[in-house]
């Protein structure tokens, strides 16, 4: 390793290690010093702002400002001329197969299938594992894919779905099963437009089910054992207990997990990018935005797609925050 390179970076390193805490410390102490000078009444209303200001600054500088910039860009041509809604028009005019429509359709697939299956599996696993010995071991196994980066996950499943012609040995797990167990011709999982979207969604579901299971399992454990015993004594069978007692009590958590998953589905990018790069009819909005910007050099089009995505996410986001607050308030 070339140490000289590291040495040239030493001043930067010193600035980062010493400077950042120093600036933060000075800000806090200075802010507090100034607040103390204020009259008693003003102090209470000023102090929170001193503490919130850095976060506000960073959010504005790195999130709000770029978002506003994106809105402007989406109304401009590549040269910077104002062209009104032309960028949006180009994305949306060719219904149903042109522009962004394939990506919009696929995002809807993701939204529905990914969300519902992850909720279903998460709930099922949470309820079932609640009743087995070694619960924590089994749950850790299901949770493990969460520790894999989405790119690695994509690569793993690319191998799982790998296609070899019928006469070659099948190295993809799924096709090996299709050929050797069911004696069928190998399938082109990732290029066949009839199945490839579902193949991608299945890989994503595998990756995220642990997340939904763990949160739903925590909600399940929050239900007092007394309630279930009371229901049993009251004459309810296990399925009735789930339907009438467990599920209603878990509902707020199910809604929070569900809306979070909807946002994940709308943001889907990495798995698609790694496994098919959005080809063969598997494009999604986030990937289309990336392609328009970096491959087609069309910042106006990319910004338009970004804004469409943003507009789709905002209502879900608001609902999610409200619901989260409602759950907190119930505690």
């Amino acid at each position: 390793m070339d140490l000289s390179l590291l040495l040239t970076d030493v001043p930067t390193l010193v600035v980062v290690i010493v400077g950042v805490p120093a600036v933060l410390g000075a800000y806090i102490l200075g802010g507090e010093f100034l607040v103390r000078r204020l009259p008693d009444r003003a102090r209470g209303s000023v102090r929170p702002w001193i503490w919130v200001a850095p976060a506000l600054f960073f959010v504005t500088a790195f999130l709000v400002a770029p978002a506003i910039g994106t809105v402007f860009t989406s109304f401009q041509s590549h040269g910077g001329d104002w062209i009104g809604l032309t960028n949006y028009q180009r994305q949306l005019v060719d219904f149903p197969n042109g522009g962004a429509w394939i990506a919009i359709r696929n995002n809807l697939y993701w939204l529905v299938l990914y969300t519902l299956f992850v909720l279903f599996f998460g709930l099922l696993l949470a309820v079932l594992f609640d009743r087995v010995p070694y619960e924590s071991v089994v749950k850790s196994l299901i949770f493990m894919p969460m520790a894999i980066s989405a790119v690695a996950l994509g690569v793993i499943w690319k191998f799982m779905f790998w296609y070899q012609p019928a006469d070659a040995p099948q190295t993809g797990t799924l096709n090996a099963i299709v050929v050797n167990v069911f004696h069928q011709a190998p399938k082109t999982w990732l290029t066949d437009p009839n199945v490839n979207n579902f193949a991608l969604i299945a890989a994503a579901i595998w990756g995220i089910t642990g997340f939904s299971m763990v949160i739903l399992s925590a909600a399940l454990k929050g239900i007092p054992a007394d309630l279930l015993e009371a229901a049993r004594v009251d004459g309810a069978g296990e399925i009735t207990i789930f339907r009438r007692v467990i599920f209603p009590l878990m509902m707020p958590t199910v809604v929070v997990v569900g809306t979070t998953l909807v946002i994940f589905a709308l943001k889907a990018f990495d798995i698609v990018y790694v496994m098919t790069a959005g080809n063969f009819g598997t494009d999604v909005l986030a990937n289309r935005m990336y392609k328009l910007l970096y491959q087609a050099d069309n910042p106006g089009g990319a910004s338009a797609v970004a804004i469409i995505l943003l507009l789709a996410v905002i209502p879900v986001l608001i609902f999610n925050l409200r619901q989260f607050r409602a759950v907190e308030a119930r505690r």
């Binding site: 007394d226 309630l227 015993e229 009371a230 049993r232 004594v233 009251d234 004459g235 309810a236 069978g237």
Partner: peptide, 15 residues
């Protein structure tokens, strides 16, 4: 099974 015993129970926590 508990549900078939036809007994009623009042729990300490009321449940």
């Amino acid at each position: 099974a508990a549900k078939d015993r036809d007994i009623a129970m009042v729990f300490q926590s009321y449940a």
